[in-house]
Amino acid sequence: MSKVKYYYDPETLSYKKIQRKKRTTFKYAFFFVLGTAFFSFIFVFIGSQYVESPKERALKRELHNAQLQFELLNKKMEHAETVLANVADRDNNIYRVYFEANPIPEEQRRAGFGGVNRYKNLEGFDNSKLIIESNKRIDILQKQIVVQSKSLDEITKLAEDKEKLLAAIPAIQPVNNKDLTRMASGYGMRTDPFTKVRKMHRGMDFSAPRGTPIYASGDGVITRADSRSTGYGKHIRIDHGYGYVSLYAHLYKYNVRKNQKIKRGDLIGFVGSTGRSQGPHLHYEIFKDGERINPINFYYGSLTAEEFNKLLERASLENQSLD
């Protein structure tokens, strides 16, 4: 039961009961509610600014973790960029130089992505700069990897071609040194054994007993094994590809047939003295793109430096050829 309140009236010298008007009660109630709401708002506002909720703390931890992950990702990208730069340097300055390919320009390797803004959807966030830069680095790194991958594919193809080229080029002496009587005549102006007139001798003559084995000087295909070429008698021609052809003349007999594939060092025939020949020997020629060239430069695969120097000395003598 609520207490009854009185007040003293000096005019009547008596106590009178306090009669509270409804309007006044409503006013007090309104100000009480308003004050309560105001102080509640202040409390909630201050609390939201300085006191974190469990959900906010969890979100803040996730954001911090995401930032750490991006930092780790950037460090990994730095390492990948360093490794890729090293591969690119070796690619340009070793591999492509060795295989005679043009180096890839730096601007082609490091080209970015111009034109349309590819990262517009990543703008407007607290860490947009970090996220955009990371994405740019990843995209550029991916492009560099594609460029490098294509370059290595090209190098692989060039290496395969180089390996085939090295196997195809005539690179050994067609008659073993132990079977030679002597290196009779080299490439250059020589005296013709029949007319005694100096003329161009476009091959090398290896003097050896009849029946001495003759070996293919490089991989290739037999294009001719016949005696239908004036002066050569029984002879063999091997197409090595890459513009190279080797010719073996004055044979006693063949050990191959036309269109047969052969490897360097295969036995292809035997020394004889057929055709325009003064005695048993092998006349050996090399063609490059249809032109005869000096065979002396094509023995790096079978002779030591000392043997080559002796051969070079003998081939330089302007003596009489055997055909």
Rank of each mutant, 00 (worst) to 15 (best):
P103A: 14
I131G: 00
S128V: 05
Q108V: 13
A167C: 11
K157M: 11
K199S: 09
V175A: 04
R228F: 13
I140M: 01
K120Q: 06
R210E: 08
A168F: 05
G211R: 09
K234C: 03
K162V: 05
V116A: 15
S229C: 12
S207L: 10
E107C: 11
P174M: 06
R109T: 06
N176V: 06
D161F: 13
E100F: 13
S229R: 14
I104W: 02
K162T: 14
K136H: 10
A208G: 01
A171T: 15
Q108M: 13
T195R: 11
T212W: 06
D126M: 12
S217W: 03
S151E: 08
L180S: 01
R202A: 13
A225H: 05
H201N: 02
I214L: 03
K136Y: 05
E100C: 11
A111I: 14
G186N: 01
L180Q: 01
L180H: 08
G211P: 00
D126P: 01
K136N: 02
A101D: 07
S207K: 15
I104R: 09
K129E: 09
K129A: 13
S207E: 09
R182C: 10
L122A: 05
A171C: 02
R198Q: 10
Y119V: 00
K178Q: 09
K178R: 15
G188W: 08
I140D: 01
P193R: 11
G231L: 04
A184D: 00
T212V: 02
K164I: 07
R190A: 11
D139F: 07
P105S: 12
A225K: 05
L158T: 03
F206M: 03
L166R: 12
A168W: 08
D192L: 08
L166P: 01
I145T: 13
R137Q: 09
K120G: 07
A208Y: 03
K136V: 04
P170E: 03
K162E: 13
G124F: 11
N177I: 15
R109W: 08
P103S: 10
R118W: 08
R182D: 02
A216P: 00
Y187G: 03
T181A: 12
D153V: 11
K178S: 15
K178A: 15
A168L: 04
M183F: 12
Q148T: 15
R110P: 01
K143A: 09
E100M: 13
G218S: 02
N117C: 03
R137L: 09
T195I: 05
S151Q: 11
F206V: 05
I155V: 15
E107T: 14
G203E: 00
G220S: 04
I172Q: 02
I140C: 03
E163S: 15
F206K: 02
G188P: 00
T156H: 14
I145K: 12
F113Y: 12
G211H: 10
P213Q: 10
P213E: 01
S229L: 15
A216I: 04
G231H: 09
